[in-house]
Computed example of a mutant assay.
Amino acid sequence: MVELAFSTNAYTRHSLPEAVRRIADHGYTGVELLGDDPHAYFPEFGDDDRAALLETLEETDLAVSNVNANTAMGYYDDAPPSSFFEPSVIRADDEAREWRVEYTKRAIDLAETVGSPAVCLASGRPLPGTMPEAAREYLHQSLREILDYAEPRGVDVGIEFEPELLIENTEEVLALIDELGRDSLGVNLDVGHAAVYGEDVAESIRASAGSITGVHLEDIVGGRRGKHYHRIPGEGDLDFRAIFDALEDVGYDGFATLELYTYPDEPDRAAREAYAELEAYV
């Protein structure tokens, strides 16, 4: 049976332990950890931070659904408020690309420590001067190194597709999984990303059967081909009954994680109302 988790990336005005405690207070059985500033930016996430997190997880009895390593905003001193993916695993600059590979390995270390089944990673977008064909080669190289590190540690890697990235839809992520041929590589399926690309979300889930490492949930105004802005379920047009039916049809029994980073000023309301809207499905 699918269980509900909530991502700490809605609680960026709070410390990581406080975010975990607040999520537990709203009835969730799982929590996704933001592998980035201000929660677990790995170059600065030390032994004391790790110990405090483990103590809080034990105190709240929350399972970790995923370590979200899509972004590394802490890399920049002046990062804009909107998330982006640089330096990415497809960056042509060898040093920057290797930095991101090593960063993802630290996310895998945290996943192993807290018992998370997976980490998620976005491909990034090809920058000017890097043709998509070359970017794809960089992606393959990076993923092979990441998977070589993840597999002995029992951690899966889920690629999260998103419109305008190198890997931006269901067909492309499944082709990538087939090309790499590694059982530990899958898709972290964000239902809103499928919708705004123009896909039928339920069909995206069914096509991904057996490859889903995790699920991100949010609502989208406009549904298919709507605008990419994460809303509290019930405030948009996605059919969550159809989404959960599709997850049941493919035998997915992991966590579905609410990703509502768009509510930093009122994360408790977002967590509370999302749970109330979706608890009937799980």
Rank of each mutant, 00 (worst) to 15 (best):
D36R: 07
S123C: 08
F42I: 13
A24V: 14
I220M: 07
G35F: 01
G222S: 11
D249N: 10
L260A: 03
D37L: 13
R272I: 02
V201T: 03
A5P: 10
Y149Q: 13
T12H: 06
P17F: 08
V157I: 14
E162G: 03
L33Q: 05
T170F: 05
L4N: 02
V67L: 03
L189N: 00
S142Q: 11
R206K: 14
V114A: 10
V67S: 00
S208P: 06
V119R: 00
F85N: 00
I243D: 04
I243Y: 02
A207I: 05
V89Q: 03
I243P: 04
P126C: 08
N70T: 10
H228I: 01
I90V: 13
G222K: 12
D265L: 15
P81L: 09
E3L: 11
E32K: 02
A79W: 07
A118R: 00
A63Y: 09
E18M: 13
G74C: 11
G210H: 13
S184I: 04
A150W: 04
T71M: 06
G129N: 09
Y197S: 05
V157N: 03
P38T: 12
S142M: 11
L110A: 13
F42E: 10
H26A: 15
V201P: 00
V196A: 07
P267A: 05
G129F: 06
I167T: 09
T130D: 04
L4Y: 02
W99C: 11
A92R: 08
L278K: 01
E3V: 15
G198C: 06
H39W: 05
H230N: 11
S7Q: 07
V2W: 10
L185T: 01
A276F: 02
P43S: 14
T130Y: 00
D37F: 12
D219V: 01
P163T: 10
N70L: 14
F240W: 07
E86S: 11
L217D: 00
S83P: 12
A135N: 08
M131N: 06
D190I: 01
E259G: 06
L143F: 06
M73H: 08
E203K: 11
R144P: 00
D253S: 15
Y41H: 15
R97S: 05
S123I: 05
D109P: 10
L247K: 09
E203A: 15
P132W: 02
A135H: 03
A270N: 09
T12M: 08
G129E: 07
I108W: 07
P152K: 13
D78C: 07
Y41A: 08
P81W: 08
S211A: 13
F42L: 15
Y11S: 08
H14K: 13
L34M: 11
A194I: 04
L53V: 13
G236I: 01
D183W: 03
D249P: 02
L247C: 10
D265K: 15
S116Y: 09
R182I: 00
L217K: 04
E86L: 09
E259R: 03
D48R: 14
D237G: 09
Y41W: 15
A69C: 15
L143W: 04
I212F: 03
S204N: 01
E18H: 13
S83F: 14
A280L: 07
A19T: 09
G223Y: 03
S211T: 14
H216K: 02
A118D: 06
Y138W: 11
T113G: 00
A122S: 11
A69Y: 00
Y11D: 04
I159A: 01
